[in-house]
Design a protein around this nucleic acid. Sequence first.
DNA 1: GTCTATATACAGATAGAC
DNA 2: GTCTATCTGTATATAGAC
Lengths: 216, 216
Amino acid sequence: MPKPNSLRKTAATRDSEATKCQILDAAMIEFAVGGLAAARTESIAAKTGVTKAMIYYYFNSKEELYRAVMQRCFNEDLQLVKQLNLDQLTPPQALVTVISNMYQKMCKRPQMASILALESIQNSGKYYPQQTAEILFDQLIGLLERGIDSGDFRPLESRHTAINIVGSCAFYFIARENLQHMWPGQDLLCPEMIDRQSKEATKMILAGVLASDKSV
Amino acid sequence: MPKPNSLRKTAATRDSEATKCQILDAAMIEFAVGGLAAARTESIAAKTGVTKAMIYYYFNSKEELYRAVMQRCFNEDLQLVKQLNLDQLTPPQALVTVISNMYQKMCKRPQMASILALESIQNSGKYYPQQTAEILFDQLIGLLERGIDSGDFRPLESRHTAINIVGSCAFYFIARENLQHMWPGQDLLCPEMIDRQSKEATKMILAGVLASDKSV
DNA sequence: GTCTATATACAGATAGAC
DNA sequence: GTCTATCTGTATATAGAC
């Protein structure tokens, strides 16, 4: 069905950067629900102000669009993490910072955890920029090992523990629809809920890794 | 392309229960990769000894097949949990049992975590038997509260903590393809790896919830 | 740059032979 | 109960007008 003239873009309202961005935003939401395989270009277009043809004009294919979404999402992420300057903090402080940062990021972009999970499950992480994963986890692992050496943390296997830490955070966002029944009528993404979840996770994780003589 | 006669089922090798089970097994694997939306009936059929038409003969539609897979998977799960008799254990013992049981289940059926995550992300948990979620989490929440009352556990918010506990476990299985780079050449699903992950998680969680005067 | 219209391919589901 | 063949809708991607 043709667009009504009122919605058609005139020369004056055309803006390639804005359109590209609109498409990326809409695509992120769509990919966060179904992943690459189940996402529909038609559905992405419907979320934007432009038609499906524009997706192919700017991104050539659904797959390339997916790549672009991943790129943008995790590049941003990486930049933020680098600004944390974890090395200048004590290991416990750094750990609290990392946890708090994870929840803040996910709160700002609730799609992130789902996209990551879907990409891992559906595509074995093929489209996930490996650098990103490595840097993010390496930061956490390094921090844990620094804490063991300093005596702040108990002896622990840093890689397994890093997974447990990230997992307790990510799961809340991944499974939130299956967890909804625990808080009927509450929005699990509202700042208050996320704040409570974040605080509770921080307490559990800190208590879980601190050396016993430091635990109080 | 027609089947070669050697693979065609003769009257003697026909078995409706076996065929149904084969389809369910294959479907579970397929659904665990793409979820309901991205799963292909053709692909499910290819994993079995029979053709796509059999899926419709036994299950009528892709959606009903999906329902049947969920049903079978989580009914089994529920039966197992009921056999744990958590009430007869001290809260710390019960918690260790629950964690160990989670890893055992996921180890036996590595698809479970992915199916749950995909169902939550793609379908908002619409097809997930709500009873199951409630019973499983209620068991864990009840156990945590019992532990707070007995003084074994520190004061904590049981629902948020339950999510953190389940999350740290589930994430390993959900994101394993994105975590592979941490152990190059290792199979993250081999019993030794899962055993290590399970032990590390148990240590962290126990230390994370025990009251400080009980922590050693 | 943006649109409509359409080619092409694929996937869910059914009909009917064996 | 199992198969082949096919109908029908839908999805990716392109052609070409504006």
